[in-house]
Amino acid sequence: MKNVIFLTLLCCILAHTAHSQTQPDSVLPVRGFCIGAPSPAGLNEFVKFIDQELAPRKVNTLILRVDYDYKYQSHPELSDANGLSKADIKKLVAACRKNHIRLIPQFNLLGHQSWAGQVFALLTKYPQFDETPWVKMPEKYEWPNPDGLYCKSYCPLAPGLHKVVFEVIDELCDVFETTAFHAGMDEVFYIGEEKCPRCGGRDKAELYAGEVSTLRNHLAEKGRQLWIWGDRLLDGKTTGLGMWEASMNNTSRAVDLVPKDVMICDWHYDRPEKTPVYFAIKGLNVITCPWRKPEFARQQVKDMIAFRNTATPEMKGRYQGMMQTVWSNAESFMDEYYGRKTPKDTLESASRCFRVMYNDIDVAISGN
């Protein structure tokens, strides 16, 4: 009889343990981490970081900002000289597969085709794709400036553009063995410019939504999902969010025009905004993305869990979870994370935000 009771208790414990292991998905389906790709020299330490830091925290989604840091076979002219090789990527794929982490590459599309005084390879090698070829890069970049230059954009209506873009997307998705692709598409200040012979005078919201749909449709042909940042779908004036975390150039109406299966990564770094509710009401799946302010991240975790717990069945599944963002490459972050470099602000840093956010997520999961 004692043996029966013992076995019954053991079965209950094992069943509870198994249930607990599946519980995180019911609390926060996406537990993400977004960072710039490591260099080949930093690859092995980053794989170790995946094993020893991401996996124990039950991170299940890793977005790697690759851009030009890969040795493309389809378009070698776009590759950085120190880019990752196919073999390097396969090491990352293996590490993520072992740890049950969904690995998603990012290549910035539409906007972010330059930074400060540097034009990136897509517009350098294909200047005919430039939305604003009359805007020249200054010797010394300053913001604000007379040209309104933050980052260059490509023209979404440029002939031949999508042949190049699609080949890059397909190659990245194939080598990453992924079912999703992150196209960036944030902070697009140049779109539908009057002097552009192709898209000048067109509705900026329709142009933006058209490019989202074009990318989404291409990915969907191979069963892949499009992820983007959400700022261009928010009205910066009505909300008071301004020109960075939202749009002041009339792209916000695109929120009603984009396909509903696009994943929205909703970033807010200066206030824990409640905009996930807006995206969910619009029928879009949404992830909240903090960066460097731990106290805001804590509130955002509470909010996302509350949204899920109090939502109607129709809305609950649209609140997908949380993703820590890191706006440096992997080596710089790991130098800070492992104490080899002290951040400018020790209380507000991506490494501290990451630790605090995932500690709160762990507490929330443990309590369910």
Rank of each mutant, 00 (worst) to 15 (best):
L241G: 05
M243A: 12
W244A: 10
E245G: 06
E245T: 08
E245L: 06
A246I: 02
S247E: 01
M248D: 11
M248E: 14
M248G: 04
M248V: 13
N249L: 03
N250H: 10
T251Q: 00
T251C: 02
R253T: 04
R253Y: 02
V255Q: 04
V255M: 12
D256G: 07
D256K: 13
D256H: 13
D256Q: 09
L257Y: 05
K260W: 06
K260L: 03
M263R: 15
M263G: 11
I264M: 09
W267V: 05
Y269L: 10
R271E: 06
R271K: 08
P272T: 08
K274D: 14
P276H: 08
P276Q: 05
V277Q: 12
V277Y: 09
Y278K: 01
Y278H: 04
F279V: 01
T288F: 07
C289W: 05
P290I: 04
W291L: 13
R292S: 14
K293P: 04
P294Y: 06
A297E: 09
A297V: 08
R298A: 15
Q299P: 01
Q300L: 09
Q300E: 13
Q300A: 10
V301G: 01
D303F: 11
I305Q: 04
A306Y: 11
R308L: 05
A311Q: 00
A311M: 01
P313M: 00
E314W: 01
K316Q: 14
G317F: 00
Y319W: 04
Q320E: 15
G321V: 00
W327P: 10
W327A: 13
W327G: 09
N329V: 07
N329L: 09
S332R: 15
S332D: 15
F333R: 06
F333I: 02
F333A: 02
F333L: 12
M334S: 06
D335Y: 07
E336S: 12
E336W: 08
Y337R: 05
Y337A: 04
R340F: 11
R340A: 14
K341C: 03
T342P: 09
K344E: 15
K344I: 12
D345I: 12
T346N: 12
L347D: 13
E348Y: 13
A350T: 11
R352K: 15
C353G: 11
F354G: 07
M357C: 07
M357E: 15
M357N: 05
Y358A: 04
